[in-house]
Design a protein around this nucleic acid. Structure first.
Lengths: 200, 200, 200, 200
DNA sequence: AATGAATGAGGCTTCATTCAT
DNA sequence: TATGAATGAAGCCTCATTCAT
């Protein structure tokens, strides 16, 4: 019966392996051979669980994405009472998470393949990005209503939050820039700017 | 002797073609056949000017990059007298430019292939990103010295500027999001937030 | 103990399934998966009864063939007294039978694979075709002896009988030709021609 | 310039090779490797001229077929004056031709693959078989009109002619039967039976 | 007897690159 | 300079067959 359990775990093991290989080489240059080897099974074995390399990509993105949207909305709603603190909390969480290569892999894949698989990009936008943005926008609106924030445009404000977070991840994982600034300091500085602005 | 002129223009025509094809399919999925066809020459013809597909990629990135760094530094220096106006000007220019797919192609390529060609990513970071950031940081520092800005961390401030600009490009070209917000308004809102912050 | 009986029937069920699949796709393109599925068992189950796909082919041909030779000889011998009627009877039976796709499948398989399995072709020729031809030839000879037929070459006469029968099957199953001529009429016309010839 | 001529001949060389390999192994078991090797080029070279193995099959059948239909009709029309002699002539030609394995290959391929490529079978029926049958039927009708033949059913008569010819080819190439009867005698006997019938 | 899981071997097809002209 | 022709080296995927339970 041991293999029963193994078999049940296989798809996830394969997706883990695929994630690793995709991170290293990107989708196109990834070889099914390597994914199989990394998963510890034969190449044909992969096809027992996934129809094609593209199917693997789609399944992977789905899996990585699915828990996120709900979490984001939950946090945003839970924190409506104290928008400022919640904003700081979410930015912290996002930067921490995205500093993990495996977490940043999906957005990066999306960027790389959106030209050829526009529907995947659409899926990601709908399921994750728009959800996240809506949650944040609600938070900003709550802050405005409470008088904690100026009456700014919530959508643009959300971009002002997400943008630097995204940049931090790109800087680290894509541009391999020095990491001399500790994350905590990055967040502190970024939030301070967001709240107080540049002007004296 | 018209062909002389044509011949001299060939490398650029080829790079133009390569850029188009890379935009559509990404580097790995791009076929030399397609690039040659788009350039209006034979596939073998491409190899008269470029040694390999990778060489094409490197040459393309070099070409697209070369004028930018100088421009950025020049603008930043020229505008040191009025940091706020210059910041607004640069953000406007960046968003406008990046709304052109052909301009955004290079950063996008970098993101996609940095895993396999780390030296290209390093090159891009050194030549463009760090240069741009340095120019902007100088501007911020000038503003602080002048008393126009609070004594913030210049590096983080630069990230707060670049991040939203980058996000705008990703949103448009990768995520194919709606473009209901006109660029001018995006810039205005973003700069306002940056200068005045969220707080009332 | 119903399963005991089922188990005993398994090989036949598998061969039935194989026959169906071979009819649809031919031997080479047939997949063991499909055969197993059609037989209602697992793929591995097929291998409990047959060593290989080729073994399946051989067993199938054997099974389909075995009763035929004896029948043919029996009919031919029983009808020696009235050669003309017996000829008509046999032609009728042959055309009827071959109008069933499952019956024609074996000759068709033989045609398709004789190049790669010459021994199967030889087996089929020896066991079926030559037997049938011998039986028919005997009938013709009997007719000649009786004065019912002209002193023709029996072997060629047999070909003149089998040929059109074979063609009728090819026309229907391979060429998918219109079936506007009812079988009875085909037989009647064919036998009339055979007996009376073209000349007035 | 030598290669110019070579290149022009390539498709035909490849089709020749494919015909050989198809004869030996059938369509499914044929390997593109073998076809390429037989044609004296690389496997990739085959794909310069044909899109796929299936395309090769279709092109081959087209090529082999195209001259035949016209020839048949021409002969039939030219011989309308003397139907009996023309019938004998055509039977002779057909049996001779089909005794060549390369000529019989196409009908044999059709038989083997008609299940999976019904449109090819339809094409063959329309272009070749129905054309041939129409030509022969016209001849028979002419004979009847002239009083040379009895008023038989022309279509069935055509089957009585084609059937034995087909059988002769099957006997030789598929069943690998002895060839003790010389073709000339086969034809003579077959035609005699057709004209004069079995009855005394 | 029966099967879900696994795989080795191999086939088709693609494509960056080279060569002969 | 320019290219049509050609190919070696892969990569994806399939499938007959075996194994562990």
């Amino acid at each position: 019966m041991r293999w029963k359990r193994r078999a049940a775990a296989r798809p996830d093991e394969i997706l883990d392996a695929a994630l690793d290989v995709f991170i290293e080489t990107g989708f196109d240059a990834a070889r099914m051979d390597d994914i199989a080897a990394r998963a510890g099974i034969s190449k044909a074995g992969v096809y027992l669980y996934f129809d094609s390399k593209e199917a693997l990509l789609r399944a992977l993105i789905s899996r990585e994405i699915s828990p996120i949207a709900a979490q984001l909305t939950a946090i945003a709603e839970a924190g409506a009472a104290d928008p400022e603190a919640t904003l700081r909390l979410m930015a912290t969480a996002a930067i921490e998470r995205l500093s993990d290569q495996r977490f940043f892999a999906v957005p990066r894949l999306i960027i790389a393949i959106s030209g050829r698989f526009p529907d995947i990009a659409d899926f990601y936008r709908t399921e994750i990005v728009e959800t996240a943005m809506a949650a944040l926008a609600k938070l900003v609106t709550a802050g405005i209503d409470k008088g904690a924030f100026r009456p700014v445009d919530p959508v643009l404000t959300v971009r002002a939050i997400i943008g630097p977070v995204m940049f931090a991840a790109l800087w680290r994982h894509v541009l391999r820039g020095d990491l001399d600034i500790p994350p905590a300091k990055v967040i502190e500085g970024q939030v301070d700017l967001l709240l107080n602005g540049l002007k004296p």
